[in-house]
Computed example of a mutant assay.
Amino acid sequence: MASKDRIQRQKEETRNSILDAAYAIVKEEGWEGLNMRKIADRIEYTAPIIYEYFANKQAIIEELTCKGHNNLTKLVKAASETETHPDKKLQAMWVAFWNFAFANKELYQVMFGVEMKCCVQSDNFERETTYQLFVKCIEEIMQDQQPTGAEVKIKYFTFFSVIHGLISVNMIGNGLSETTNEQIFKDAVVAITRSLYKQEEIPVKETTSS
């Protein structure tokens, strides 16, 4: 049994080494620079060994994409647990989303299709997703209005469209300073959060991306 456990552990370590090497190459050369030979050279294995774990480059990209989505979900969930007030919670979650994008630029590009085709293999995602976390929080804020599922979905995609758009133009380059871009992000999050409330309700004023 110990021998089987050791073999399984070694296989998992090799698999992770392949993924780590692949992402290191991507960070240096971009997704177009990734290939199986470079991965094998990076970890000093032969190419056939790499193919024992992944059928092709696309399989590696899909695995990295899934890991990226799972990591993003964990970060957004952790951010939601730092606040108790629903609108502060929602703003903290979008800050986590924003920070993830710039800390993991190459992953974000392939996860959400920035300057390249989006890669998604949803059956490998963990059960809870960032979408579900955001929707749950939006529903909590809007509960007195008894919104329909469609209305909540519209609010989520309003957030996502604006924030993903800001992230995308930042990555491509919009000529604005980092400080200006962060202020635009903060203003957008606060403004959309306020739109979730009835007119007589007063939401939280400010958010921060640091």
Results as ranks from 00 to 15, higher is better:
1 M>A: 11
16 N>K: 10
105 K>V: 09
97 F>R: 05
195 S>I: 06
131 Y>R: 11
126 E>Y: 01
138 I>V: 03
5 D>S: 10
205 K>M: 06
22 A>W: 07
150 A>V: 10
108 Y>N: 02
195 S>V: 06
43 I>P: 07
86 P>K: 13
31 W>C: 07
129 T>H: 03
163 I>G: 01
159 F>P: 01
61 I>G: 08
22 A>V: 00
113 G>Y: 08
144 D>K: 11
116 M>F: 03
99 N>F: 00
2 A>N: 14
33 G>R: 13
61 I>L: 10
88 K>T: 03
41 D>E: 15
202 I>Q: 05
37 R>E: 13
6 R>W: 10
17 S>I: 00
145 Q>H: 09
210 S>Y: 09
34 L>H: 03
36 M>L: 14
124 N>G: 10
4 K>V: 10
145 Q>M: 09
43 I>C: 01
77 K>D: 14
141 I>W: 01
210 S>K: 15
147 P>L: 06
12 E>W: 01
91 Q>W: 01
130 T>P: 06
126 E>K: 06
184 I>P: 02
193 T>Y: 06
167 I>C: 09
172 I>H: 08
21 A>C: 04
99 N>K: 14
28 E>H: 05
168 S>T: 15
57 K>D: 11
150 A>L: 10
46 T>V: 10
137 C>M: 00
117 K>M: 05
189 V>M: 10
138 I>H: 04
45 Y>K: 12
63 E>W: 01
139 E>G: 07
108 Y>W: 15
75 L>Q: 15
160 F>D: 08
60 I>S: 03
173 G>W: 09
81 E>Q: 15
193 T>W: 02
176 L>E: 14
182 E>A: 09
114 V>N: 12
177 S>G: 11
27 K>V: 01
29 E>Y: 12
63 E>R: 11
25 I>N: 05
105 K>E: 11
92 A>C: 05
205 K>L: 07
66 C>K: 08
63 E>N: 14
208 T>M: 04
200 E>W: 13
164 H>T: 08
29 E>V: 03
5 D>C: 00
76 V>W: 00
79 A>L: 08
106 E>N: 09
52 E>T: 14
120 V>D: 00
36 M>A: 12
207 T>Q: 01
105 K>L: 06
183 Q>E: 14
185 F>P: 06
154 I>C: 00
71 N>A: 13
109 Q>S: 12
101 A>F: 00
125 F>H: 12
2 A>W: 10
158 T>Y: 00
24 A>W: 03
161 S>W: 02
176 L>H: 15
73 T>I: 03
88 K>Y: 09
60 I>P: 01
27 K>R: 15
113 G>M: 00
40 A>N: 06
